[in-house]
């Protein structure tokens, strides 16, 4: 088991290094930040001083080297615009994004698994067919447009929910959380549902496909032959088998949720790191873009690692393979 974890850790390290290079070189090519930062009437000398102070005059590889050595100390550069450490700015916005992603994930799981299993158990029924058609809709609807439509209906036309921003937050265990007050909850509801829609459809389909596949297996028939209650067959024999793929995919998709929150946060003006990214792209604030991407890379690598380990706990067959190898 520990050999397995160490090997995965090493692999993850390599991925982080490669990605940091790709991200840095990609962002290095973006426009000329000096154009934006220096006022138009600044003379040549002031410009050069600015360039020097930001380290933009050095060759690319040197800049990358400086970036890496600083990054190892937790310094991902200072925002050109805010003159504050980029990492801090992003970490400041992170809880809002995480809350959004977690609430969305909960919505996707709580509604998705039962609906999907139901659709898999009774594939010919009217309800299942509606669920599946609905899930195609969920896949097809572009997130940002659904968001706009939700604002139009629930905020503009019905006036039930606030259209933008984050409401009251309570600090619980050092984390600002908004779902525990009505104001906070009403603010998070629309964006979370919006973000969840795609994953919800995915969970439904995974759960349905898994259920259908598992139901055809001999061991389900054997479980019936033992005279087990239908509920036990579904809740234990079917569920435990489909949970493995669903948990894996969902875990992997958590990063996707965080990434996709870029769109939802832009629509609902949710003050998370995704919105900060889009604003920074507009302002060509390189350090923030780099810092955001590096954090996302870390997040993804971390998630992959956790999912691998979880998977090996859930599925005894994988565990055995790794003991052997």
């Amino acid at each position: 088991m520990s050999v397995f974890i160490i090997r995965r850790l090493l692999q993850s390290g390599v991925v982080v290094i490669i990605m940091s290079f790709i991200v840095f070189s990609g962002v290095f090519l973006i426009g000329d930040p000096v154009e934006i930062l220096v006022s138009d009437d600044a003379d040549q000398e002031e410009r050069e001083e600015m360039i020097k102070s930001m380290g933009l005059d050095k060759p690319f590889l040197v800049q990358y080297g400086i970036f890496v050595s600083k990054a190892l100390k937790g310094n991902l550069g200072e925002s050109f615009v805010f003159n504050e450490p980029a990492l801090l700015l992003i970490l400041d916005r992170m809880p809002a994004t995480m809350e959004l992603a977690v609430v969305s994930l909960m919505i996707a799981i709580i509604f998705g698994i039962p609906l999907g299993v139901w659709a898999g158990l009774k594939p010919e029924s009217w309800a299942s067919k509606s669920i599946m058609t609905g899930s195609i809709l969920g896949f097809s609807l572009p997130t940002f447009w659904v968001g706009i439509m939700m604002i139009l209906f629930f905020a503009v036309m019905l006036g039930w929910l606030p259209s933008t921003g984050r409401g009251d937050v309570q600090v619980i265990l050092g984390m600002p959380i908004s779902i525990f007050s009505w104001d906070g909850f009403s603010h998070v509801l629309m964006p979370a549902v919006n973000l969840a829609l795609f994953k919800l459809s995915m969970v439904i389909r995974l759960a349905r496909a898994g259920t259908r596949e598992v139901l055809h297996q001999d061991y389900i028939k054997f479980a019936k032959a033992k005279g087990l209650q239908e509920s036990r067959i579904i809740l234990v024999h079917v569920m435990k088998n489909i949970l493995i793929p669903v948990v894996t995919v969902l875990g992997l998709e958590f990063g996707g949720l965080v990434a996709f929150s870029v769109v939802t946060e832009t629509v609902f003006a949710w003050p998370g790191m995704g919105k900060l990214l889009i604003d920074s792209i507009g302002l060509l604030d390189r350090p923030i873009i780099v810092a955001y991407l590096m954090i996302i890379v870390f997040l993804f690598v971390f998630i992959n690692l956790v999912v691998d380990i979880l998977y090996s706990i859930l599925d005894p067959r994988v565990r055995l393979q790794d003991v052997k190898s």
Partner: peptide
């Protein structure tokens, strides 16, 4: 009745037991 009064042994031993339980 199944399992108490009437029980069955299946043909393919590799498939009859649930792999995750």
């Amino acid at each position: 009745l199944r399992g108490v009064n009437i029980s069955m042994i299946f043909q393919d031993p590799m498939m009859t037991l649930n792999p995750v339980l």
